[in-house]
Simulated scan of single mutants.
Amino acid sequence: MKHIPRKRFGQHFLADDGIIDAIVRAIAPQPGQAMVEIGPGLAAMTQPLVERLGRLTVIELDRDLAARLRSHPQLEVIESDVLKVDFTALAAQGLRRLRVVGNLPYNISTPILFHLLAHVDAVGDQHFMLQKEVVDRMVAQPSTADYGRLSVMLQWRYEMEDVLFVPPESFDPPPRVDSAVVRMVPRISPVALDAKRLEEIVQVAFSQRRKLLRHTLGRWLEDKRYPGDFDVQRRAEEVPVLEYLSLAQALS
């Protein structure tokens, strides 16, 4: 029976064979690699992946789709909300880092990215289909409109690249937005710092992004020791990632 996309799960199924082939080529799966696909849906990308890998673990919340996927002999199906999945434990089972891929539900894509950030040490790389606007924010550089909290937090731990544009007509049903595929590779030697402190700093800095930092972050820093050369006469979007990282280190 035909599966009816469920709005509450943010389901938009990839249906363009050319786009699917381009994504799989960008991922470049190799036999025997440990890979996890988030939200396999109707298995449009799942099948070409598992053909190259031999085995594939998939995470699917929709119980009807999960039941279909269990009939595939080469799939290990985890029926769960991805935000409850322990990727570090999954990697430990195979004693190797995971390659994580997926067409992420656009309504919870940012929470998924931050959930995976907490498990970054267990990940070899990530390839995700996301709303183009989100990808633009992820890879944005300072002094641009897209640069913000997501840019800083993810660029701290990942090298990222926008690898493929995907138009709405590539999906069934078509979303109302453009999409893109992003490649995320964990940095080999990330700056060591307190992640919660960095998130706190960035949250405060971008809370009123049109104001100078002396009106937002400056007041927050009054009772804390921080580098005297940190210029609060700038807006949050003008501060490079490395300066936020140095500030978080100093305050840790």
Rank of each mutant, 00 (worst) to 15 (best):
I78T: 07
F114S: 03
R183H: 15
F230A: 08
F9L: 15
E238F: 02
A34S: 13
R70C: 09
T144Q: 12
D86Y: 11
L104W: 01
D125M: 11
Q30R: 15
S143T: 11
E243G: 04
Q131L: 09
F13C: 02
G218C: 08
Q208A: 09
H115R: 12
G10W: 05
G54E: 08
P227E: 09
E79F: 06
L49S: 10
R96G: 03
R55Y: 05
Q208W: 06
R99A: 05
M138V: 12
S109I: 00
Q47W: 11
G124D: 14
P186F: 05
I108M: 11
I108N: 00
L217R: 07
E76N: 14
D146S: 13
S207N: 05
K2P: 15
R187H: 06
R70E: 15
A140R: 10
Q33Y: 04
A44K: 00
I27R: 03
P167H: 06
E169T: 02
Q141K: 14
D162Y: 13
A180T: 00
A236P: 01
A118N: 13
A92G: 04
Q155T: 11
A66I: 05
D231V: 08
R52L: 11
A195S: 14
Q203W: 02
R52S: 13
P105E: 12
R225S: 14
I201V: 12
D229G: 01
Q131I: 09
A44L: 02
P48Q: 12
D194V: 03
D162S: 09
D136V: 00
D125A: 13
Q93W: 03
A92L: 08
I201E: 03
V82L: 04
R63I: 11
M45G: 07
Q11L: 08
L130Q: 07
Q47I: 15
